[in-house]
């Protein structure tokens, strides 16, 4: 292997480790049930019911809601 290719000895393992991290992250997310509900979470981000001020007075939150 010529000298310019030596860098591959580091780079390929690095690439594999990065890819592998992604794979492990996916396996974790699968196991922890991240894909159980594909509909709900996109609506949950719009829900303000968990803000401190709204917990204090739910009525105010209702008035704000469209």
């Amino acid at each position: 292997m010529n000298r310019t290719m030596e860098v591959l000895i580091y780079l390929i393992p690095v690439a594999l480790v990065l890819g592998g991290t992604g794979l492990v992250a996916f396996m974790w997310s699968l196991r922890s049930g991240q894909y159980d509900d594909m509909e709900g979470p996109k609506w949950r981000i719009l829900d303000d019911g968990d803000l401190q001020e709204n917990i204090a007075s739910p009525e105010a939150a209702k008035r704000k809601a469209p």
Partner: peptide, 19 residues
């Protein structure tokens, strides 16, 4: 889930081997 895991592994492998 077993299929999805197998799919993830083969997807990872296919990309890296293709590279």
């Amino acid at each position: 889930r077993e299929i999805l895991r197998a799919l993830a592994v083969s997807g990872f492998a296919a990309m890296n081997i293709m590279l």
